[in-house]
Structures are given as C-alpha cells and as structure tokens.
C-alpha cells in the first residue's frame, strides 16, 4: 500500500512537472465535473444547448487549426521558395498580399466574412449546418493562417543560414525535400504543433466573440435562427446574460453566491467554459513550449 502511494506521488510529481500534460488533465477533469454538475442541476433543454454549443465551438476551432495549418504550410512553402528563386516579383506580390491581410484587424475581417455567410443563408445557398460551420472555420482561418506562415518562414530562414542546408543542396537533394522534410518535418514539427495549440485558443476566442457580437448587435432573423449554436451565441441569449449579471450581483451581495451555481447555471456554465478553456489552452501551449525548450 505504501509503495502504491509512493508510486502515485512520483507519478503526480512527474505529471505536475510537465505542465502541458498537467493542464490537459486539469482541463478534462474540470470539464467532466462541470458536466456532472450540469446533469444534476441544469434542465434538460438548456443542458442539450450547452453541450451542442460547446461541441460546435470545439469543432469549428479544430477545423480552424487544420485549415490554418494546410493554408499556412502551402503558402509558406511558396513564399520560402520564391524568396530565393528568380521569381522575386512573385515573392513581393505574395508577401504584399499577406501583409495587407495582416493589416486588417482579425475581428473586422471575420465580421465581414460572417456578413457574407448570412447573405448566403438568406439567399438559400448555404443551409447545411455542417457546411455553415465549415465556412465559418474557413473565414476565421483566413485571418489566422499568417501566424503559421511567419513560423514557417522563420524556421526556413534560420536553417538556411546553417551549413547543412547548402551541404544538402550540393548533394543534389531537392529544395522541396529539404524544406518539407528536413526543416519543417524533422526539425520544426514541435514548433508547428505549439503554434497550432496557440491557434486553437485564438480560434475559440475569435469565434465566441464574433458569435456574441453578431447575436447581440446584428440580431437579424438569420443570425438568431440559422447560424449554428456556439458558446458565443449562447452567451448572448437574454437568459444567459441575466445569469452573468447575477455574478456581478454577488459582489455587492455575497450571500447570493450559492444561488449562482443552481439558479443561473446556464450562463455561468457558458462563461466558465469559454474562460476556462482559454486559460487551459494557454497553459497547455506554454507548458508544451517549456517542456520542449522552444
């Protein structure tokens, strides 16, 4: 028994020292506890909505990560190749366009993209929920993928300065293979993975924010009915907003604190899921960078 305790203690200490794994476990653990609490105390329709909103948010954010990765890798590759090729004009055109996208605040670009989605929905061109969510993810990734390109360019430029790059070229290995396999896959995949974790957090933040803004500010028939439920749109609902107001109420009236976990569960859960997920993803990303000494 004593040995078992020691084993558990050693294992716990090892997990605690690897902050990314520790926070991943904490995230899952707290999410499970929140789910159990909600099953016990939240009414069924509201619980279904919260679960649907959370899963949709995760789905869109995961899709943003995948799309940003694909777009970033492909365009980053073109930029890296054009930079040293004789097609310098293509390099300047590409970086010029990328810099223009960078100069548009993400939130404005995504908001305009969402306006396009609502137009497509009203014109009955876009009606499948999965397709709508995929389009939402594509729009968000268009304003995030620049981060992947920056990383790829930074890594390629770093390795280009080293001897092995020229040595491989002299050996007749194609530049595509050197960049894709030797630089990005063999020597940078941990950096890319770390960037993708950070992008996952940004995607959740941007998506919740834009859904909240659309639901509060542009509460047209389309946005309230046809857009898929996400944590952001759930938070904008009047009952959720009242639940959030109750949190402020406890500051002046601390005895009300116990009520918010029973009577205002929907809004509090949604707000908690957003904030805690953002915090956990940040901690995981930091822990991952620390563990791999990035």
């Amino acid at each position: 028994m004593n040995n078992l305790f020691k084993k558990i203690e050693r294992r716990s200490a090892s997990i605690y020292s690897q902050k990314d794994k520790f926070w991943l476990i904490v995230w899952f653990g707290i999410l499970s506890l929140t789910l159990i609490w909600n099953i016990l105390f939240l009414n069924k329709p509201a619980l279904d909505l919260v679960i649907e909103g959370f899963l949709n948010t995760l789905y869109i954010s995961a899709l943003v990560v995948i799309l940003s990765f694909i777009l970033g890798w492909i365009i980053g590759l073109f930029v890296a190749r054009f930079e040293t090729s004789r097609f310098q004009i293509l390099y300047f055109v590409l970086t010029f366009i990328l810099n223009i996208i960078r100069s548009i605040p993400q939130i404005i670009g995504i908001l305009l993209g969402y306006m396009g989605i609502t137009y497509l929905i009203t014109a009955n061109i876009l009606h499948n929920h999965w397709l709508i969510m995929t389009t939402m993810a594509l729009i968000i990734s268009l304003f995030i993928f620049n981060e992947v390109i920056d990383l790829i360019r930074e890594r390629v430029n770093h390795f280009r300065k080293l001897d092995f790059y020229n040595a491989m070229k002299v050996c007749g290995i194609s530049e595509n293979r050197i960049i894709n396999f030797d630089i990005l896959w063999k020597n940078s995949r941990i950096h890319i993975l770390n960037k993708l974790i950070a992008i996952f957090g940004s995607a959740i933040f941007l998506q919740c924010t834009i859904d909240f803004i659309i639901s509060v500010g542009l509460s047209t028939q389309v946005s309230s009915v046809s857009l898929p439920t996400t944590l952001g749109s759930l938070l904008a609902k009047i009952d959720s907003k009242q639940d959030i107001l109750a949190i402020g109420n406890t500051l002046m009236n601390p005895s009300y604190f116990s009520h918010i976990f029973f009577e205002h569960l929907q809004g509090v859960t949604v707000a908690f899921l957003i904030v805690f997920t953002l915090l956990a993803v940040y901690k995981i990303s930091n822990g991952f960078a620390e563990r791999n000494r990035l």
Binding site: C208, F212, G248, N249, L251, I274, V275, F276, L278, L279
Partner: peptide, 19 residues
C-alpha cells in the same frame, strides 16, 4: 486574476453591468 485576465471583455462587462 487569471480568470479575469483571460476572460473576454464582454463577460467581465456584463457581469459588472448592474454595479
């Protein structure tokens, strides 16, 4: 304070709106 620092602005603002 970590929760506050990571909270989107609208969550904090709505929770303080009555106060």
């Amino acid at each position: 304070s970590y929760f506050v620092l990571f909270a989107p602005a609208y969550v904090i603002a709505y929770s303080l709106k009555t106060q």
